[in-house]
Write a protein that binds this DNA or RNA. Sequence first.
DNA 1: TTCGCTGATATCGCTTCGCGATAGCAAGGC
DNA 2: GCCTTGCTATCGCGAAGCGATATCAGCGAA
Lengths: 99, 99
Amino acid sequence: MDVVREFRNGALRLLVLRHATDAEVHGALLSEWLAARGHRVSPGTLYPLLHRLQDAGLLKSRIEVVDGRRVRRYRTTKRGKRALAECRAVLAELAADVA
Amino acid sequence: MDVVREFRNGALRLLVLRHATDAEVHGALLSEWLAARGHRVSPGTLYPLLHRLQDAGLLKSRIEVVDGRRVRRYRTTKRGKRALAECRAVLAELAADVA
DNA sequence: TTCGCTGATATCGCTTCGCGATAGCAAGGC
DNA sequence: GCCTTGCTATCGCGAAGCGATATCAGCGAA
């Protein structure tokens, strides 16, 4: 029961959607980006999350070949942006409530 | 995969710790308080959560009798307050990152 | 006093999620 | 061919979510 970790985990969805709105991200870079913000996340958490977000229609992806290596690039969909907006609202309320 | 719900869920811990810092809360009232803030949570989620938070030493509880009914009142421990402070810091970073 | 009623708490059962470890996979260098 | 390297995917087990259901203690009414 690591409360901070679990809170971070919920926030992960938000950060992924946020980041994939501006750029076409791929898993490994995303992992570094998150780690730089203090969110260390294992591949066993990140990839299933990406798949679930895609299944839910919040992300879309395509395979791209970069330097011969195949990477799966994700981008936030319109639906994903709506979810993000909703999360931002919840975040604002939350900040007010725990202040 | 309801992203908003899952984000709320992580936030739940924070709100519980926050609320139990100011007052000695009990499950049912807490449930109403959360619902009023848009966090509808079933007893099957809330009670196990309270137990886990107590097991982790973030909450302490005692049975009290009110109008003949026994209620379990929770209060945030010192350790719980530290966890809360840490979560607040994460929350602030998060707000900055998704802005 | 026995029978529900009510509000509070607890638990069950199934599903989903987290996540470390491990495997797969394609291109380049040897 | 066969390592190595860098991404991506999966496995397996433990933990958590949560609707439904059970338990529990006083209360009032018949």
